[in-house]
Simulated assay, not measured.
Amino acid sequence: MVANRLVKDTKFVASLKARAEAYAQDLDNTQGVGPHTISVPRIRPASGMDLTKSLFSQ
């Protein structure tokens, strides 16, 4: 039964990979960008971050 599960998982992963590649290609064709160039802003700050200090300030 483990072999059956591995075959199903392998097919599932291959399906996800194919969908991700198709999505990336569609983004490139329609928007002229790849998925690595799209950033989603945070809705709330990351815990433990002090937002009063800039990482780039001296």
Rank of each mutant, 00 (worst) to 15 (best):
Val40Ala: 13
Tyr23Leu: 09
Ala14Asn: 01
Leu16Gln: 03
Asn4Ile: 05
Pro45Phe: 07
Lys8Asp: 11
Ile38Ala: 11
Asn29Met: 04
Leu51Tyr: 15
Lys11Ser: 03
Asn29Glu: 06
Tyr23Phe: 09
Ala24Val: 13
Lys53Cys: 08
Ser39Ala: 10
Arg42Val: 14
Ala24Ile: 14
Ala14Glu: 01
Val7Glu: 04
Thr52Trp: 03
Ser15Asp: 04
Ser57Leu: 08
Phe12Asp: 03
Gly32Asp: 02
Ser57Lys: 05
Ile38Arg: 10
Leu16Thr: 01
Thr37Val: 14
Met49Thr: 13
Gln31Met: 07
Asn29Trp: 00
Asn4Asp: 05
Thr52Pro: 05
Arg19Lys: 05
Lys17Leu: 01
Thr30Asn: 07
Gly48Thr: 08
Val33Ala: 14
Leu6Arg: 00
Gly34Tyr: 09
Ile38Glu: 10
Ile43Gly: 15
Asp50Tyr: 10
Gly34Arg: 10
Thr37Leu: 15
Asn29Gly: 07
Gly34Leu: 10
Phe56Met: 08
Asp28Leu: 07
Leu16Asp: 01
Ala14Arg: 02
Gln25Met: 06
Ala46Arg: 09
Ser57Asp: 08
Ile43Met: 12
Leu6Glu: 01
Gln25Asn: 12
Arg19His: 01
Gln58Asp: 11
Pro45Asn: 09
Met1Gly: 13
Asp28Ala: 12
Leu51Trp: 15
Lys17Gln: 01
Ala18Asn: 06
Ser39Trp: 14
Thr30Trp: 02
Ala22Ile: 02
Leu51Thr: 13
Asp50Met: 13
Val7His: 02
Gly34Thr: 14
Asp50Val: 13
Val13Trp: 10
Val13Asn: 11
Ala3Gln: 03
Leu16Ser: 02
Arg5Asn: 12
Ala22Met: 03
Gly48Asn: 12
Arg5Ala: 08
Asp28Gly: 07
His36Thr: 14
Gln58Thr: 11
Ser54Asp: 10
Lys53His: 08
Ala18His: 02
Ala18Val: 02
Ala18Leu: 03
Gly32Asn: 02
Val7Ser: 03
Tyr23Val: 09
Thr30Lys: 05
Lys17Trp: 00
Lys11Thr: 02
Ala46Pro: 06
Ser39Thr: 09
Ser47Val: 12
Asn4Phe: 02
Met1Val: 11
Gln25Thr: 04
Lys11His: 03
